[in-house]
Write a protein that binds this DNA or RNA. Structure first.
Lengths: 211, 211
DNA sequence: TAGATTGTTAATCGATTAACAATC
DNA sequence: TAGATTGTTAATCGATTAACAATC
């Protein structure tokens, strides 16, 4: 038996990663008008084994029909509920430099149900300017604004040397999920989730394989 | 004994990932003026075990002195050589939208030794414009320009529906390493490395942990 | 019913960690 | 020399895959 079956926090991280992938594929299958899909075909789309698809889903319940397969639409809805993306997720962004601005207008976030509701920067020249309908606030107002808002996830696009300090403030504001683009390891209490995307490091890893 | 010890391609991906991390930490340690570092301390910085640090390094040789530890500078130089980042790595970018522009001016790439030497876009209004000293070329000239250039890695920031087609062309141009930001699975021949950064998916995974 | 595919258990595989002889 | 820390082997842990009874 799986340990802690009913506690979603103990689902392996690799499974969560694939969950979002399943949603994508299922959406495409739905668009194609198909009304059934087997673990075998689903696995083919992802380049994994059918057993893994079924095992991943088993962490959360039984969604298929033996001898038949899965209903793409129903399964996707289930998975979205499990991921928590069956509603609009509110974002705040801190650091409105080039990357920050690009993310603020990234359509992929919007189509996946994410919405920026606050943006902050240290630079007073940027404060008050609007980017994609959203007014940039001063970082001085971070606590005041976050307190009254429903921010679910904070996107962090500040320079590396500012990141830890900002995160400490976010933690005090009861933010529990952070997507960090600063190329530095950040300490957070165990109840806070921080995922880091290190763009330069992705390139370094690719370099290794250049013949 | 490790299988294929002398063939770097068989080093686990997780080890390569940490290699770049080690470089970062070692650089900081060097800046702090330290001339020795143990696997224990190095591990602490990364939140892993000392055994893992030593095992990772063992894939590539012996870099330490028993009873003493490692020389931060020497180890970092070794690791950079292994990663292939001991020289300037040339990049091309395809798709000069918001994200593309942000990456073109991302200082993190420059400081880590990456250099954009070509940029392409489909939109004729963008062609000829300069971004960060670099002239945007028409995607029509992709083959012509890549043929005469020393591009090591291509950064792909085109819409999802254009990604596969562009990659097919890149493969024909003998590009073997791609960093893809389009949120779609892309097929490549086995000799081509493609790493995908799916920004929306990072947020979806975080959503899961929101209480 | 026969055929197909699920959900789940057991086997396998790979990666991490512990332990320790070698050695500076 | 005594103390410290490496490099490496063996043990452990966790995740993936194979197999198959259950069942539509």
């Amino acid at each position: 038996m799986e340990p802690e079956k009913n506690n979603l926090r103990y689902v392996p991280k690799s499974v969560i990663k694939r969950l979002a992938l399943y949603c994508r594929i299922l959406h495409r299958i739905e668009m194609d008008g198909l009304t059934r899909i087997s673990s075998k075909i689903l696995a083919q789309f992802l380049g994994i084994t059918p057993a893994q698809v079924r095992k991943d889903l088993a962490y959360f319940g039984q969604f298929g029909v033996p001898g038949f397969g899965y209903n793409p639409h129903d399964l996707r809805i289930h998975l979205k509920k499990i991921l928590g993306t069956d509603r609009i997720i509110n974002l705040a962004i801190i650091g409105v430099g080039n990357l920050g601005k690009a993310l603020l207008s990234y359509v992929g976030f919007k189509t996946q149900g994410f919405k920026f509701i606050a943006a902050f920067d240290l630079d007073q020249r940027k404060v008050g300017r609007k980017i994609n309908e959203l007014k940039v606030s001063s970082i001085n107002e971070l606590e005041k604004i976050l307190k009254d808002s429903d921010v679910d996830i904070v996107v962090l696009t500040v320079p590396a040397n500012a990141a830890q300090e900002v995160v400490d403030r976010l933690v005090k504001c009861n933010i529990t999920a952070i997507l960090n683009f600063a190329p530095i390891r950040i300490d957070v209490p165990s109840h806070v989730r921080i995922h880091s995307v290190d763009l330069a490091m992705e390139l370094e890893r690719l370099s290794f394989y250049l013949r």
